[in-house]
Deep mutational scan, measured.
Amino acid sequence: MQIFVKTLTGKTITLEVEPSDTIENVKAKIQDKEGIPPDQQRLIFAGKQLEDGRTLSDYNIQKDSTLHLVLR
């Protein structure tokens, strides 16, 4: 499925993911596309910070959802 990741600069990254993918996995995909190390990434969805060990389906993230990427 496709999800979107919006950065603070207003750029939107499109990712191909599975509901069973972990947040860690998603961060690795963002690193592949953007070169941002996962340890600098914070992903936010519906006002919640997403934890590495959980999956997209744990957070009820569905296709065409938009996550927000904050760098630390």
Results as ranks from 00 to 15, higher is better:
M1H: 06
M1T: 14
M1P: 02
Q2D: 07
Q2S: 09
I3V: 09
I3E: 00
I3M: 12
F4L: 11
F4E: 12
F4P: 03
V5G: 01
V5A: 03
V5M: 04
V5D: 00
V5K: 00
K6S: 13
T7L: 05
T7N: 06
T7E: 08
T7A: 09
T7H: 14
T7I: 03
T7D: 15
L8W: 02
L8M: 07
L8K: 05
T9M: 15
T9E: 14
T9W: 03
G10I: 14
G10Q: 11
G10Y: 04
G10D: 14
K11W: 09
K11L: 13
K11S: 14
K11A: 13
K11I: 06
T12N: 09
T12F: 11
T12R: 03
I13Y: 08
I13D: 01
T14R: 06
L15S: 01
E16T: 09
E16Q: 11
E16Y: 05
E16A: 10
V17E: 01
E18D: 07
E18G: 09
E18R: 05
P19R: 12
P19L: 02
S20H: 15
S20N: 09
D21L: 07
D21S: 05
D21T: 08
T22L: 13
T22H: 11
I23Y: 02
I23T: 15
I23D: 01
I23M: 12
I23W: 02
E24R: 02
E24Y: 13
N25E: 14
N25A: 15
N25D: 02
N25L: 05
K27R: 09
K27P: 00
K27W: 12
K27N: 04
K27I: 13
A28M: 08
A28K: 11
A28T: 11
K29N: 09
K29P: 00
K29E: 12
K29Q: 06
K29H: 03
I30R: 00
I30H: 00
Q31M: 09
Q31R: 04
Q31A: 05
Q31G: 06
Q31E: 03
D32W: 13
D32S: 10
D32G: 06
K33N: 08
K33L: 09
K33I: 11
K33P: 07
E34H: 10
E34N: 03
G35N: 13
G35Y: 09
G35K: 05
G35L: 06
G35H: 10
I36P: 15
I36F: 14
I36M: 09
I36K: 12
I36T: 09
I36W: 07
I36G: 05
I36S: 12
P37L: 14
P37M: 07
P37W: 10
P37Y: 11
P37D: 03
P38M: 15
P38F: 14
P38G: 12
D39W: 04
D39R: 07
D39L: 13
Q40G: 11
Q40A: 08
Q41K: 03
Q41V: 12
Q41I: 10
R42T: 14
R42D: 15
R42E: 14
L43W: 02
L43M: 05
I44E: 14
I44S: 10
I44F: 06
I44T: 15
F45P: 00
A46Q: 05
A46F: 08
A46L: 11
A46E: 14
G47N: 07
G47F: 03
G47L: 04
G47H: 04
K48T: 13
K48P: 02
K48L: 15
K48A: 10
K48Q: 09
Q49V: 03
L50M: 08
E51R: 02
D52T: 05
D52K: 02
D52W: 04
D52Q: 06
D52P: 12
D52H: 09
G53W: 07
T55V: 15
T55S: 06
S57I: 03
S57D: 08
S57V: 13
S57R: 10
S57E: 10
S57G: 08
D58P: 01
D58Y: 03
D58L: 08
Y59L: 07
N60L: 08
I61Y: 01
I61R: 00
Q62T: 11
Q62V: 11
Q62G: 13
Q62E: 11
K63T: 09
K63M: 10
K63Y: 07
D64P: 01
S65W: 05
S65G: 11
S65I: 01
S65H: 02
S65A: 15
S65M: 13
T66Q: 02
T66V: 06
L67R: 01
L67D: 01
H68N: 15
H68V: 02
H68D: 15
H68T: 13
H68R: 03
H68I: 14
L69D: 01
L69I: 14
L69K: 00
L69A: 14
L71V: 13
L71E: 08
L71W: 12
L71A: 11
L71T: 11
L71H: 07
R72W: 12
